[in-house]
Design a binder for these strands. Sequence first.
DNA 1: GCTATTTCGGCGATTCTTGT
DNA 2: ACAAGAATCGCCGAAATAGC
Length: 334
Amino acid sequence: MNYIVLDLEWNQSYRGKQYTVEGLPFEIIQIGAVKLDENKNVQDRWECLVRPVVYKKLHGKVSEMLGISINDLENGKDFKSAADEFLAWCGEDYKFITWGGSDLTEFQRNMKYFGVEYKFPFPFTYYDLQKLYSKVYSDGKTRRSLKAAIEELGFTEDAEYHSAINDAIYTARIFANMDFDSVSVYESIDTYRIPQSRKDEIYMNFNTYEKYISKGFKTREKAADDRTARSCRCYICNKPMRRLIKWFATSSKNYYSVFVCEEHGLFKGRMRVKQCDNGFYYDVRILKQTDEEGVNGIVDKQIKEREHRRKKRMEEHKRKCENQNQNKIKYKYR
DNA sequence: GCTATTTCGGCGATTCTTGT
DNA sequence: ACAAGAATCGCCGAAATAGC
């Protein structure tokens, strides 16, 4: 199996969102990629310019950042040929690596818009190296820009950033030098396409946790209330679990819950409703094995949220009273 | 059992950061 | 300038509770 490190550059409407074409918020103008074998040895490179046909002028921010003008793209390929050639170059057995989680979504949007026919696997998994970099070198949550990561690692900065092929090469360099094996189980799942039906729903077991992606629902409510998503089975033995704490929302868009498996103990659940390009709503749920301390953390979160609201209300109430008193005083001395 | 007030919970708006 | 994820704020209707 090969690794394809992919990086894209894209353009957008130069005169504002109201002129954005339906189904194509961004138009890809550069494709850059590096192919590595399973031992992380570089095999090949691929790059091309794409001549834009929808947004034929570059947005000011884009040309500034990329350091190019529209003239540089005149001799570019049309997207369909570029994508066909690129996908043929990718071969049969490969996995994508990108810096951040947006490239594959934009690539598929462009493919759909320009009628490129190609079947990516389902579920469509890839490696988000920005996330894996954070897991290896940081807390797993913060996201570093590519430049910041290269500088942190002390790599030589021998090429301009924000060029598709250069950024792909930088990303490949980080990939080849990091302890990838220690984090390689943490694949990302592309959700440009979501499960069509119940039987297509995704249950990914990452050893320490399980990720579930539901089918699409017409409304946010139906997605949030779905019984399949709200009731959980143990991802180790597949037996139904008992719910210890019912699902509750914090002031964020996350829902939390705690379940218990008779054999494997405590699990914390986190769920979020998202919306897909086709307008359907779907659930992303993560189940993670935990202990009493972890459960206390969830309970604390719930209590903290209540306390937080109570305090807010108290302050609000106090302020109201003070205002009333002030009014009274005013009346007194009038 | 009705009404007013308090508490809860869902969700949009806002902000920060990344990406182009 | 626009997109998307995550975190936070705050509004407002629903549910719970207090007061009668």
